[in-house]
C-alpha cells in the first residue's frame, strides 16, 4: 500500500514538472513571437506555443483538444508563414517584425485587458474538484456536436462557408470584358 502511495506521489510530481516545463516553453515561445525581429522566426516560435498548449491539454486529459490544437493551429501555421512572406513589403526579412514607439498606447490597453481577464478569472467559480475523465473522450463529443447542438454547429459551418466564398469573391481578379461588372 505504501509503495502504491509512493508511485502516485511520483506520478504527481512528474506531472508537476511537466506542467512547469510546458508553461515555461509556452511563455518563452510567446515572448519570442512578440520580440523577434524576423517575422518568420516569430511565426515559427508560435508553433512552440501551440505545442506547449497541446501538452498542457494532454496533462488535463483533454487529448482530443490537444490533437485539434496541433492539427488546426500548429499545422495551419505554414499558411500564415506563406502569407507573411508574400505580403510583407520589406526588402530584408530580418526586419519584418519591427518594434515601434506605439507601446505607449499599447501598454495601458493591454494592461487593462490583463486586469480585466485577471478579475474575471478571480471571480469565476472554478470547479476545484476534478471530475472523472471518461476513458474515451471522443465518443461523448460526437452526439453533443451532431445531435444536441446540431443547429448552432451547422450555423457556424454555414457562416464559415459564407466567409470563404466572400474571400474568394474579393480576391478574384476582376476581368474587364468591356462592361462594368
Amino acid at each position: 500500500m505504501k509503495q502504491l502511495q509512493g508511485c502516485a506521489d511520483m506520478e504527481n510530481s512528474l506531472e508537476l514538472i511537466a506542467f512547469f516545463l510546458l508553461a515555461g516553453s509556452l511563455l518563452t515561445g510567446a515572448l519570442m513571437v512578440v520580440t523577434l525581429k524576423n517575422l518568420v522566426n516569430s511565426v515559427l516560435s508560435l508553433i512552440v506555443v501551440f505545442f506547449s498548449l497541446a501538452g498542457i491539454f494532454i496533462l488535463l486529459n483533454a487529448d482530443f483538444l490537444a490533437a485539434v490544437q496541433v492539427l488546426v493551429y500548429a499545422g495551419g501555421v505554414c499558411i500564415m508563414l506563406v502569407f507573411g512572406v508574400m505580403l510583407v513589403q520589406r526588402k530584408d526579412m530580418r526586419e519584418s517584425n519591427p518594434v515601434n514607439r506605439r507601446f505607449l498606447i499599447a501598454a495601458p490597453l493591454t494592461g487593462a485587458l490583463f486586469l480585466l481577464i485577471g478579475l474575471v478569472a478571480a471571480k469565476s467559480p472554478w470547479v476545484k474538484e476534478a471530475g472523472e475523465v471518461p476513458e474515451n473522450t471522443i465518443e461523448h463529443l460526437a452526439p453533443i456536436l451532431l445531435r444536441d447542438y446540431v443547429i448552432p454547429f451547422e450555423a457556424v459551418a454555414i457562416l464559415l462557408t459564407v466567409a470563404l466564398t466572400g474571400v474568394l469573391l474579393l480576391v478574384k481578379e476582376v476581368k474587364d470584358n468591356g462592361r462594368s461588372s
Partner: peptide
C-alpha cells in the same frame, strides 16, 4: 494504443509541411 488514432496521424502528418518549408525558406 491511442483512442485518437487516425486523428492523431492527421495532426502529426500536417507538421511535415512546416519543416520542409523551413528548409526552403
Amino acid at each position: 494504443d491511442l483512442n485518437l488514432g487516425v486523428y492523431y496521424f492527421v495532426a502529426m502528418a500536417s507538421l511535415s509541411t512546416v519543416i520542409i518549408w523551413m528548409a526552403g525558406w
